[in-house]
Computed example of a mutant assay.
Amino acid sequence: MSQFTWFTGRGPALLEAQLDRRIGLAEPAALDHRPLHEQRLVVLDLETSGLDTRRDQLLSIGAVVIEGGAIDLGQQFECTLQRRDHKVGPSVLIHGLAPSDIAAGIEPAEALLDFMAFLGDSPLLAFHAGFDQRMLARALKQSLGYRLRHEFFDVAELAPLLCPQAKIPHGGLDDWTGYFGLQAQQRHHASADALVTAELALILFSKARRQQLDSLLALQQRLAGWRRRQRAHSLHRQH
């Protein structure tokens, strides 16, 4: 048996043990009407070499779990990915990852397999989730030949949807944590940002239940209508 298994085309080469792990990853769960407090959710934050989702690299992953209606501090994930070709850029002033941290990181395929095993079949939450979703999907495709199909929910959308009285239509994480009086231990650190995002999400879920939105499926449906109204409002203002 060969030590490596090659994918067809230009896919990555994986050790057979890595391929076995990839094959064994859980299929993402379909959204349903389970109450929010019965749902396991993984709250994700990524640090990257920049904001270009086509060229920049995923550098670190931080994640915490919401389960049983609370943050389960016994389920946390944190790792830095090894990037041999990483060049220090302006983003180091934000994420603070030194070249030595990245050189000592975990080989990307191993790191991503570890994270996907931690994720299991759970949906994902993130702040400005579109960016995290694209960066994670690209990293998974490049390092594992894996297509990300897990559901993502954007806390940056849930917050103005559920709290229109705050009048923070396009707020950042600092805006919303400030509004609710939350404090991040260390901003722009993946694990710390994931934790404060999870705290914010729990507040929003409480508000969702008061609005008879007590499942991810109900939230997804309400979000779809909210997005349509946002687009219509934006088009109206342009004309």
Rank of each mutant, 00 (worst) to 15 (best):
E110Q: 11
R222N: 09
P164L: 05
P90M: 12
I61N: 03
L73G: 14
Q211A: 08
K167A: 15
G130V: 02
Q39K: 06
A104R: 13
Q39Y: 13
R134E: 10
Q238I: 15
G130C: 10
T5K: 09
L19I: 04
F180G: 07
R228S: 15
D154R: 02
I66V: 05
L173S: 02
R222D: 03
A198K: 01
K87M: 13
L140D: 03
R209M: 13
P169L: 03
S49I: 09
L73V: 11
L195R: 01
A192S: 15
A111Y: 04
F118T: 04
E199D: 08
L140S: 07
F153E: 10
G181Q: 03
Q230Y: 12
M135T: 05
H150R: 00
A30V: 13
K167L: 15
Q3P: 08
D85I: 13
W176R: 01
T80L: 04
E38H: 13
L217E: 11
L51N: 07
I61Q: 01
F131S: 01
A190C: 08
I94N: 06
L204H: 03
G89V: 07
R229D: 13
P123H: 03
I168V: 04
R34M: 12
S100L: 11
Q39L: 08
G11E: 06
A13F: 09
V88S: 07
A201L: 09
A70F: 15
D132I: 09
L144F: 05
M135Y: 01
A98R: 15
S143W: 04
W226T: 11
E110G: 08
V65T: 07
L81R: 00
L195C: 14
L213V: 06
A13H: 11
A126C: 07
Q212Y: 11
L148F: 08
P28D: 00
T177Y: 00
L46H: 02
V155H: 05
G171V: 02
Q76L: 04
A198H: 06
L81A: 02
A13V: 10
Y179L: 11
G9K: 12
A232I: 11
A159P: 08
L158H: 07
Q3L: 15
A218Q: 05
H189G: 11
A30C: 06
M116H: 02
D20Y: 14
A117R: 12
I66S: 00
A63E: 00
G11V: 07
G68W: 11
D175S: 07
A126L: 09
Q238D: 13
A30I: 11
R231I: 15
A111T: 02
T48E: 14
R134I: 07
L173A: 00
T5N: 15
V42M: 09
D214K: 02
K141T: 14
L14W: 01
